[in-house]
Amino acid sequence: MPAYILGRLAAAIPTLLLVSVFIFLLVHLAPGDPALLIAGDNASPAQVDQIRERLHLDQSLPAQFVIWFSNAIQLDLGASVYSGKPVTVLIAQRIEPTFMLAAYTMVLTVLVAIPLGTIAAWRANGLVDRTIMAFSVAGFSVPVFVTSYLLVYLFAVKLRWFPVQGYKPLSDGIGATLVSLTLPSIALMLVFAALIARVTRAAVLEVLQENFVRTLKAKGMSTGRILVLHVLKTAGVPIVTVIGIGFAALIGGVVVTESVFNIPGIGRLTVDAIVRRDYPVVQGIILFFSVTLILINLMVDLSYALFDPRVRG
């Protein structure tokens, strides 16, 4: 078991390093001189040179990468070109709404998708299965901003159950936060749940073919017990895997949803930074989300040990 954890950790390191190289090159190979951009139109050539020196833009690309990377692992991602604030501070300020939105969506998704996927597999090819799967195809075909506006129109403009947009911070009480995030979380959940329900169905269907299921059935165990205690646990690995994979889509969705609902999170920070061509912030956010994704997938790998005793070795 410790060997497995260490192995997984070791495998994540080269990925992390490669991702940093990609993100570094992404911004540094872009056309245009960042120093000119930061200095503005009225700057003298001397001022531009000064900025170039301060940002180490006068050095070679590999040297710049080493400086950027060693700063990044010390949590120094540079400063915003627009506000001058450190990128880490900007991200930290905006992390609460984004984290709450992602966590709320995740909880809703698991509560909706896993039962539906299991029922669909249990009633495979029947009416219930077909209905659930039809909704699932529709779920990830309708883009998240389309569902967002449909939900806003129905539940905020017409029924007035939820606010049209905005975010209430946790300092206002968790109840207020959850109310303000309900519509965005449902919109995001619909896309995410569609994916997870399908994989749950496929995984459960696979396990239902196993001989041990027939044995349990024959010895008189109730269908509910078989499904929840035995089948779902055995089907856990692919389900957890797809939750990890789906997280990448969730991050993309968060960027869009925050724009629609005017939530002051990292997604909005991304869009603002891109509109302002604030490259250090863009770079920092992509690195932040990529690291998050790598850590989530690491956790997914480690959770296999929970479902599959063979992994524990």
Partner: peptide, 14 residues
């Protein structure tokens, strides 16, 4: 694998 660790929509936006 490294490319796939960068969220696709975010990479496209950037």
């Amino acid at each position: 694998d490294a490319m796939m660790s960068i969220p696709a929509v975010l990479l496209a936006i950037a």
